[in-house]
Design a protein around this nucleic acid. Structure first.
Length: 854
RNA sequence: GCGAAAGUGGCGGAAUUGGCAGACGCACCAGACUUAGGAUCUGGCGGGUAAAACCGUGGGGGUUCGAGUCCCCCCUUUCGCACCA
């Protein structure tokens, strides 16, 4: 353990003990008091007299212990919650546990401890840590997702999804993580690897799985982003990209020659139907169903296609499908362009993806870089059909028909396109789509990159999917009144051979709810992102046991005013929960369409330039920080070291600095708490008293502005440090009885109020020291008075030709003409401009004077 | 390749609208108090100079009385997207 300079316990005992900041003593004292008062942080259920404020931090996975990222996240939310309480709001500030998930199973395998015990033990420990850190949570609303009281409603919602046609079962290629031994959603695959195992390549497996129809809300999820002005633009962009809306048209190209089982036409998706006269081939994804037909009697072609499939799979697994070297093979067959009856060769190409659009494209080498590259490689015709020129504009003298020129949809027109020549691209798109629709070989289409959410997991520690398979009746939902389907205990957990629940006969074997015949339960569990998609609704009424939530209560609390968490959930959790909210809205259970008005994504906590991780051995333990410096120092440092949206480099010496600051605040207030009050006759304050009064109000303004605006709590803390430094500067005057007692008492009380959101333990202790009996948390936030904050005198910076050469003090209420006249007469200024001609004098009121000379 | 954010002392960072660059903290240096200091207090602390001048916000240009801040070009880092037809 590294040696530190400033451990309270190591200070000699003979120092004046009442003068020494001992966070352990203070924090243990208040911790005990706060524990005894469960109502302290409770939100009022329905308080129409006060405005509500719902501040939410993303709930943690109970991995075992809090890390510094948690501390930072919660320190931000807690400061905000406490500030809003002091502003008089009815604050809802809850906490819970995202308690299902694979690590519990891994721990079970490794340590032979049941997942439930492991999880609940971890929760108990982490909850104690949170309480010790002084976070003001309303624990009466705690949500633990692995308990039947919660997950039964996951099952209930699943039945609703099924009832509404939003949950369905489908056999398809799915992402499989061999490390997790389970399927992953598309959102959980990052660069071809598992989101939890960054080194593990995700494999493709053909499985029958449950899907949730997130795509039903694709359009709305996209459009809603425009309204989410309180969300970081970065997150909105990421979601827009993920949804990947693309407007275009489907067009059928009839197959020439015999048709096989896959039909007699190729449907392509294109966003650029206006370039269709420039199409010189049709290209299929290697896994397109038609390819099997075309290669039916051609072993060589089949081999070549297999090679293409292999190349694509390899590139996908490597995560660089974008860099794949284009490779294709001509099938020997042709398709007919419905617009001009041309025969186009049909190719199969390794860069065409089956899971986007229709898995088939028309290739227009002249106006698409990829098609151009492919055409160059294989000698396909390049036919220009667009000129980069406005309609009616005369051709430039050197106009050439060149491929792949940059052009916009409005500044261009069609050529070599039959009846459509001379139209702008925009017009052509509309007319050609119409034409295709009227003639039955195409239609306008919107495609999305977003896919339905695969929620089946072949794991034990999750919500059982409430479905039953009956040989006679098929898929039968578990009747609502039989919920919850309880997760059995004592399950043999391994990471091999499918769902652990499948090895529990008393779970699997069940009577069919319809025909009473023998049937089998679904043995997969739900993705844990189901749990976190709606947990924040449950907080409003966590103990309801006859329904998941109470709509009037939701209407009072929602939407969430401020959501705070890591940017790593920009796609996953934040898109699922936006989906879930709309689904609940359409069930009539909530009336908001978005869960959260504002989202804040805090930066990471790093150490020595690297993210804290056990592998790198650079983890700082919150317990250790609390033991050595106290919770207040750890929390305040987490806010002081960097603006909350930036990465924070944890430096132990910095925590010591904050500890020193809190010590100074503590010592000042304890030493001067009993200062005598003025008798009332002092009309004019001493300059130092006035100075403190001014600094106090300037500080109130700075801290309040930070809460209202940018949340740069690092500058808030710095401002309070300045105030404390200034107070130290007047201690002699206080000791001599020359300082205004009223100003001192006011400054001390307000200093404590300003500290309260950041260092709640210290603030509570000092509040009591000052003889205050009221609850600090509900005490009104101090108000800034501009009259007190105003400077008496302004020290103007005087520039000569833009360089500062002197300072001249003038009374603060000086008019601009006065300053303009007074400043140049100053001796130092005179000396600086001696002998030169004054061309111009620029006065910036309250700041500076610039004298331009020649 | 496309898009976004960032680049300021030895370090973390300040400067919200174009107006005194480096607040606040760390580290460091000096002094005071002390048997002692790793406590506390006071002072110093971008480079440079005896003191000035002068030079300094990734680099280069520009606009302006005045640029960390605005404009143009370039470099680096981080993040996101990347044959999406």
């Amino acid at each position: 353990m590294p040696k530190t300079t400033n451990i309270p316990a190591q200070q000699p005992a003979e120092r004046r003990s009442d003068d020494r900041y001992d966070p352990r003593r203070i924090e243990e004292k208040w911790h005990a008091r706060w524990q005894a008062d469960p109502e302290l942080y409770a939100a009022s259920p329905h308080d129409s007299t006060r405005k509500k404020y719902y501040v939410l931090e993303m709930l943690p996975y109970p991995s075992g212990a809090l890390h510094m990222g948690h501390v930072r996240n919660y320190a931000i939310g807690d400061a905000l919650a406490r500030y809003m309480w002091m502003q008089g709001y009815n604050v809802l500030h809850p906490m819970g546990w995202d308690a299902f998930g694979l690590p519990a199973e891994n721990a079970a395998i490794k340590n032979k401890v049941p997942p439930k015990k492991w999880t609940l033990d971890n929760i108990a420990h982490m909850k104690a840590q949170m309480k010790r850190l002084g976070f003001a949570y309303d624990w009466s609303r705690e949500v633990t997702t692995c308990l039947p009281e919660y997950y039964r409603w996951n099952q209930w919602f699943f039945l609703k999804l099924y009832e509404k046609g939003l949950a369905y079962r489908k056999k398809s290629k799915v992402n499989w993580c061999p490390e997790c031994a389970t399927v992953l959603a598309n959102e959980q695959v990052v660069d071809g690897c598992c989101w939890r195992h960054e080194e593990t390549k995700v494999e493709q497996r053909e499985l029958e799985q449950w899907f949730v129809r997130t795509t039903k809300y694709a359009e709305e999820l996209l459009a809603g982003l425009d309204q989410l002005e309180g969300w970081p633009e970065k997150v909105r962009t990421m979601q827009r990209n993920w949804i990947g809306r693309s407007e275009g048209a489907m067009v059928d190209f009839r197959l020439e020659g015999p048709a096989g089982p896959a039909g007699n036409k190729i449907t392509v998706f294109t966003t650029r139907i206006d370039t269709i006269f420039g199409a010189t081939s049709v290209q299929l994804a290697p896994e397109h169903p038609l390819v099997a037909d075309l290669a039916a009697d051609d072993d060589d072609l089949r081999d070549e296609v297999d090679e293409l499939v292999g190349e694509q799979v390899k590139a996908k697994e490597a995560g660089d499908i974008g860099a794949i070297e284009k490779h294709g093979v001509f099938t020997g067959r042709y398709a007919i362009n419905p617009f001009n009856r041309e025969r186009l060769p049909i190719w199969v190409a390794n860069y065409i993806l089956m899971d986007y659009g229709t898995g088939a494209i028309m290739s227009v080498p002249a106006h698409d870089e990829r098609d151009y590259e492919f055409a160059q490689k294989y000698g396909l015709e390049v036919r220009v059909v667009i000129l980069p020129r406005r309609i009616g504009e005369p051709p430039a003298a050197n106009e050439k028909e060149e491929p792949v020129l940059p052009y916009t949809l409005t500044d261009s027109l069609l050529i070599n396109s039959g009846d459509y020549n001379g139209l702008s691209n925009q017009e052509a798109i509309a007319k050609m789509t119409d034409f295709a629709e009227h003639n039955g070989f195409g239609k306008a289409t919107v495609t999305y990159r977003l896919k339905d959410w695969g929620i089946s997991r072949q794991r034990y520690w999750g919500t059982p999917i409430p479905m039953i398979y009956c040989d006679k009746c098929g898929v039968v939902p578990v009747p609502e009144n039989q919920l919850p389907v309880l997760l059995p205990d004592n399950v043999d957990i391994t990471l091999e051979g499918g769902s652990p629940l499948g090895r529990v006969p008393e779970f699997v074997n069940v009577k069919c709810p319809r025909c009473r015949g023998t049937a089998r339960r679904e043995t997969d569990t739900m993705d844990t992102f189901v749990d976190s998609s709606w947990y924040f609704y449950r907080y409003t009424n966590a103990k309801l046991n006859d329904r998941p939530l109470d709509t009037p209560t939701i209407d009072y609390w929602f939407p969430i005013n401020q959501y705070i968490g890591g940017v790593e959930h920009a796609i996953l959790h934040l898109i699922y929960s936006r989906f879930w909210t709309r689904f609940m809205r359409d069930l009539g259970m909530v009336h908001n369409s978005e869960p959260a008005l504002r989202l804040f994504t805090q930066g990471m906590v790093i150490k020595g330039g690297a993210k804290m991780s056990k592998n790198k051995g650079n983890v700082v333990s919150p317990d250790d920080m609390v033991a050595r410096f106290g919770a207040d120092s750890a929390r305040t440092y987490a806010l002081f070291a960097a603006p909350p949206d930036r990465d924070l480099d944890w430096q132990e010496a910095g925590v010591e600095g904050v500890f020193r600051f809190l010590s100074r605040a503590y010592r000042f207030v304890t030493r001067n708490a009993g200062a005598q009050q003025d008798t009332g006759s002092v009309a004019v304050l001493s300059p130092k008293s006035r100075g403190i009064q001014r600094k106090l109000h300037q500080t109130i303004k700075r801290v309040t502005d930070d809460f209202q605006g940018r949340w740069h709590f690092n500058t808030s803390v710095a401002a309070i440090m300045e105030l404390v430094n200034e107070l130290y500067g007047v201690e002699e005057e206080i000791a001599a009885g020359k300082f205004s007692g009223n100003v001192l008492a006011d400054a001390q009380r307000k200093l404590v109020l300003l500290l309260a959101p950041f260092a709640p333990y210290l603030a509570a202790e000092l509040w009591e020291t000052l003889g205050e009996k009221s609850a600090l948390l509900r005490h009104p936030w101090p108000e800034y008075d501009p009259v007190f904050a105003k400077e008496d005198e302004i020290n103007y910076a005087v520039q000569i030709n833009g360089k500062v050469r002197a300072h001249v003090a003038v009374p603060a209420d000086s008019t601009e003409p006065f300053v303009r006249e007074r400043v140049p007469t100053d001796a130092k200024v005179q000396a600086a401009i001696a002998g030169r001609e004054v061309v111009k004098v620029i006065v910036v009121p309250g700041k500076l004077v610039n004298i331009v000379v020649r």
